[in-house]
Design a protein around this nucleic acid. Structure first.
Lengths: 342, 342
DNA sequence: ATGAAAGCGCTAACAT
DNA sequence: ATGTTAGCGCTTTCAT
């Protein structure tokens, strides 16, 4: 009976609109009108009484009830692969900022980059009847063909789906190819001729684009990508890949391009652990410009991605009727980890 | 009319339990029983038909409707100061993991360490009638007297409030004093005799405890905390405080204790920028052991706080009838940033 | 074991 | 301008 009891307790102690109306001596409708957004006019005397009653009782509208009565709920669902990863943390902060501005609630779920899990979550999320869904989850499968059905289900439910990369009703695009190309070109200009790439993940759009872009840029500048190592997205994966790479042999003057800063940071550790030096001996560059890239020594050369702003844009994309992503080139940020050759 | 239209559209396209029941040729009650957790027995033949109908229609229960009918909603509200800060990101990941295990939804809100904002959010959150509220928001005011009313409102509403630090129905405790004391003692044992502290924030419980603990430990080992610098919780605040400290003069062999790793990392940058050396010249230690502490060079000596696990505990605390925080001492992790003296 | 029906808290026609 | 009332989608007594 705990449940029933608890329910009764919760209910009995929470004033309803009905209570407020009665206390104010007005009808339910009037109370609703003054308390919740309606445009309808209510005489000041009534308005006051209702407001006072609501205040005294400590009334707060039950969102669930409103949602079902209105047929729409004030929630935005956000799916991220890993909220502890700064990449997603920054995106989430942008989303949260936007939602706050509009008085919407953000619901968050972690996919762990597992498509199956992602679909499960998406399915469960449907029950919330959110106004929008933001998928920043699938660095491991964007462009993949797993969740279109689940996503479509949302659209037909009236919720806008926004994805980082392709797939949803709207997409927030990150010019991975362009940014990486510029980085490659810049690195070639700084004298690097040999590069190896870390963190490649076949079929992951982001990964493929960054790799292709970098190769194009680096080669156009006379450089050569000699090897590519697959690996995950975590710091440890970067260290692991780098260790393997070192075992394979890495000449001084080689440039290591890690497909994300987090991976780059892991690689730097591995380089150091192997008794080599980051910078003058082995150069390293990453992608994203998450805060940690400025904390390492030497600081990491990377491509700045305005993650928080993109999160904000993703939010706007879910709620605004008209929306277009502001164009902005990804900027290369050269720091100490790529001192240049000669 | 957009609203009305949209609503109609959303509604008409989403199958309700009613639709399922009709399609399966059973009553609403039966459909409800098979689809949603009820213990009641339903004949297999009926069960099958209902399940099939639900499947074909792509039915998903409307959580809002269930919430209002049941009088309880499956949501846990999480308040954090800044989701992009690894400290909170890790806590959030633990909370999310727990919620996922129990099929609960996590709602997230950002307080920006602003008590006023926090209260506003808390108030709005009430409308969700969450089962629990986790407050990991107030590093800037735990122990303060701002939100007790809002928190109390939740309790009387049937939601359990869990805070990091004191204040809620239950609290997840971090032994800041003990950990810092051990750190101080250890540092003294490594030969440090002079320390300055960065990131102190008067009235912030966490800050006060860490400062007091460290002082006690360090002094008991023969050391002396000579100066304390106030400052915020961000990397930049650490850099700033450290710059001021350097201007005041910092002798070689001094130990800098930053009240959090993030601040410590900022301090390290400032030290370097000033042409000094972290480690042999000026030693640095922090608190929390967030990932970045292992990425910097030299790696940062700190006190390990199992943030993600604590987030998980906080979740358990909100939902479990019986709960007790597992005791575990905070462990000092000595790394390169405090090589020791002599 | 199944179904009818009375809510849950709120909104929005539709009267008045 | 205010009130009446019929839902919204679902759960749960209470009959059968």
């Amino acid at each position: 009976m705990t449940t029933a009891e608890g329910r009764r307790a919760a209910r009995s102690s929470t004033p309803t609109l009905h209570d407020v109306a009665r206390a104010a001596g007005v009808s339910l409708a009037t109370a609703s009108r003054v308390l919740n957004g309606s445009e309808r006019k209510v005489a000041d005397s009534f308005r006051e009484r209702v407001e006072q009653a609501a205040d005294e009782l400590g009334y707060t509208a039950n969102i669930s009830a409103q949602s079902i009565a209105r047929g729409t709920s004030p929630v935005i669902a956000l799916l991220v692969a890993d909220i502890a990863d700064p990449f997603f943390g920054l995106i989430a902060s942008g989303v949260a900022r936007g939602a706050d501005e509009r008085g919407l609630v953000v619901t968050i779920a972690i996919t762990e980059r597992d498509p199956e899990r992602e679909n499960r979550i998406l399915r469960a999320l449907r029950g919330q009847r959110p106004q929008g869904v933001i998928l920043a989850a699938s660095r491991s499968e964007d462009g993949g063909q797993e969740s279109p059905d689940e996503l479509a289900a949302f659209s037909s439910l009236g919720a806008r789906t926004v994805t980082f990369g392709p797939g949803g009703d709207r997409g927030v695009q990150i010019d991975n190819h362009g940014g990486a190309e510029r980085l490659g070109r810049e690195m070639a200009a700084r004298g690097y001729r040999t590069a190896i790439v870390l963190g490649a993940s076949e079929g992951v759009r982001t990964s493929d684009d960054r790799l292709a872009g970098f190769s194009a840029g680096f080669e156009s500048g006379g450089g050569d990508v000699v090897r590519t190592y697959r690996g995950g997205f975590a710091r440890e994966d970067g260290a692991e890949s780098m260790t393997v790479a070192l075992a394979d042999g890495v000449e001084p003057g080689t440039l290591v391009f890690a497909l994300s800063d987090v991976v780059a940071v892991g690689a730097m550790t591995a380089i150091r652990d192997a008794g080599r030096t980051v910078g003058s001996d082995i150069a390293v560059c990453g992608f994203d410009d998450v805060p940690v890239s400025r904390d390492v020594t030497p600081q990491l050369t990377t491509v700045r991605v305005p993650l928080s702003e993109l999160g904000y844009q993703a939010f706007r994309a879910t709620v605004d009727a008209e929306w277009e992503q502001p164009e902005a080139d990804l900027e290369v940020v050269v720091r100490g980890s790529t001192p240049g050759i000669d």
